[in-house]
């Protein structure tokens, strides 16, 4: 897994590539913990995300709860069919904001 972050205006865009699973989620958690404290608007770029398991979902849920509590917003885009399926089964597609493209996600922040 690789994580890269960039900032566009006041929006933090975090790209997660590879897999987000029990092996990689501690590192993802650590990276997001570095971004979240000062951030109000966070967009996750999943266009290079191969698959996500429940360990990865836990990281996303933690980030969503943190931002919700601090009045921030979280969006994500670029989900492949497998990631989308996991989101559907877990009910995450109805509790997290999923967008079709980066432009759409950034526009909604």
């Amino acid at each position: 897994m690789q994580i890269s972050t960039r900032t566009s205006n006041d929006i933090h865009i975090v790209a997660i590539a590879g897999s987000l699973d029990s092996t990689t989620s501690p590192e993802a958690q650590k990276s997001l913990s570095g971004v979240l404290p000062g951030a109000k608007k966070v967009v996750l770029d999943f266009s290079q995300l191969d698959y996500i398991s429940s360990a990865g979902l836990r990281v996303l849920l933690g980030a969503a709860k943190h931002l919700r509590a601090s009045g921030g917003t979280l969006g994500m885009f670029g989900l492949n069919q497998s990631v989308r399926e996991v989101f559907e089964i877990s009910g995450f597609s109805s509790i997290l904001s999923v967008y079709q493209s980066e432009a759409e996600a950034v526009g909604a922040m």
């Binding site: 897999s19 029990s22 492949n80 497998s82």
Partner: peptide
């Protein structure tokens, strides 16, 4: 492949 990877991750973890 991705579905099996997820299942393996869940069960092994």
């Amino acid at each position: 492949r991705r579905s099996v990877n997820v299942a393996l991750d869940e069960l092994l973890a």
